[in-house]
C-alpha cells in the first residue's frame, strides 16, 4: 500500500506559481552524475528564485551534497546543465563564484593559521581590500562572541567556534546565494537563534539560501520551500503547507518518512533493543 502512495507522490510540484518570480537564480536541467557505476543523481530539474530559503533534504547518500558540490565547481563530470545567475558553469567561468557563499558539512580549513590570517586570506581571494576584510572579520567575530580568538590558531578552536568561523568566512564578501550544509552543527542554543535570525534577514534582503540539514524541525520552520531528494531524484518540491496537505502528515519528519518509503523505525528500534539484551 505504502509503495503505491509513494509512486503517486513521485513529484509533488509546488506548481507554476513559482515561475512568475522572474529569472531563476539557480537553474538545473536534467542533472545526472555518477561515480563509477554508482549513479548518484538521476536527472534533477530545479529552478530557484531570489529570496527563497530552500530546505534541501533527503536521506544519507541521496545526492544532496553532490548537487551542491557540482554547483560550486568542486565536482566535474556531470551531465546536464547548471546555470547560476544566468552563467552556465560548464563554461569554466569563475565570476559567478563571487556571488556564492558556502559552508560545507565537513569543512576543511587551514587550521595552523589564526582566524585573522585565514579570514583575511579568504577575503582577498574574493578580491576584497585587506583592511576592509580585517575590520569586517573582527566585527563579525565579536558579534559571534569569539573576538578574543581572532589571533588564536584555528587548531585550538572548539567545534562551535570553528563553525562560527566557517559561517563568517562564507559571508564575508556579502554573497547573493548561500549554501549551508548542516550549518548549526556544534553551535550552542543561543548562537543557533542568532544564526536563524540572520538567515531570515538575509532572505528578506533578497538573498537566496540553500539550507541542507537532517534536523527536520529547523528545516520545517525556516524554509520557504522544501525540496526532498531521494535516490538522486527530486521526490517532493513545495512549501511546508503544500507538502503537509498533500501527504496528510503533521510534521516534516513524518512527510520525510512517508516519501522516502520508510516506516519501519519502530520495528528496527525494537529489534535493536532485543539484540542488546542477547547474552
Amino acid at each position: 500500500m505504502i509503495m503505491n502512495i509513494n509512486i503517486s507522490f513521485m513529484v509533488i510540484k509546488a506548481g507554476d506559481t513559482m515561475n512568475t518570480k522572474g529569472e531563476a537564480v539557480v537553474s538545473i536541467r536534467d542533472l545526472a552524475m555518477s561515480y563509477g557505476t554508482h549513479q548518484v543523481l538521476r536527472g534533477i530539474n530545479l529552478n530557484v528564485f531570489q529570496g527563497e530559503i530552500i530546505g534541501y533534504i533527503g536521506p544519507n547518500g541521496a545526492g544532496k551534497s553532490t548537487t551542491v558540490k557540482i554547483i560550486l565547481g568542486l565536482v566535474d563530470g556531470f551531465k546536464g546543465q547548471v546555470k547560476v545567475l544566468g552563467e552556465d558553469i560548464a563554461d569554466g567561468g569563475i565570476e559567478y563564484k563571487r556571488k556564492i557563499g558556502y559552508v560545507p558539512e565537513t569543512a576543511e580549513v587551514y587550521d595552523t593559521l589564526t582566524a585573522y590570517e585565514y579570514l583575511t586570506f579568504i577575503g582577498e581571494m574574493y578580491g576584497m581590500e585587506f583592511k576592509l576584510v580585517d575590520q569586517k572579520a573582527q566585527k563579525l567575530m565579536a558579534l559571534f562572541d569569539i573576538a578574543d580568538m581572532y589571533h588564536a590558531r584555528i587548531a585550538s578552536y572548539s567545534k562551535g567556534m570553528k563553525q562560527k568561523l566557517l559561517i563568517i568566512s562564507s559571508l564575508l564578501h556579502n554573497p547573493d546565494i548561500l549554501f549551508f550544509d548542516e550549518p548549526l552543527s556544534g553551535l550552542d542554543a543561543n548562537s543557533v537563534m542568532v544564526f536563524k535570525e540572520i538567515m531570515t534577514d538575509l532572505a528578506a534582503q533578497g538573498k537566496t539560501i540553500f539550507y541542507s540539514s537532517h534536523i527536520m524541525d529547523v528545516v520545517e520552520k525556516i524554509s520557504s520551500r522544501i525540496i526532498l531528494i531521494n535516490n538522486g531524484q527530486i521526490v517532493a518540491d513545495g512549501s511546508f503547507d503544500q507538502l503537509s496537505q498533500k501527504c496528510r502528515e503533521g510534521s516534516l519528519e513524518e512527510i520525510f518518512n512517508q516519501l522516502t518509503g520508510f516506516n519501519r523505525h519502530k520495528e528496527i528500534a525494537d529489534e535493536f533493543i532485543a539484540v542488546l539484551g542477547e547474552a
Binding site: G73, L74, I94, K97, Y102, E108, Y110, I122, M125, Y126
Partner: peptide, 13 residues
C-alpha cells in the same frame, strides 16, 4: 585535496 576544497568554491581559477 584540501587546497582544492577550500579554494575552488572561491572565485579563483
Amino acid at each position: 585535496v584540501k587546497d582544492k576544497n577550500i579554494l575552488l568554491p572561491r572565485p579563483v581559477d
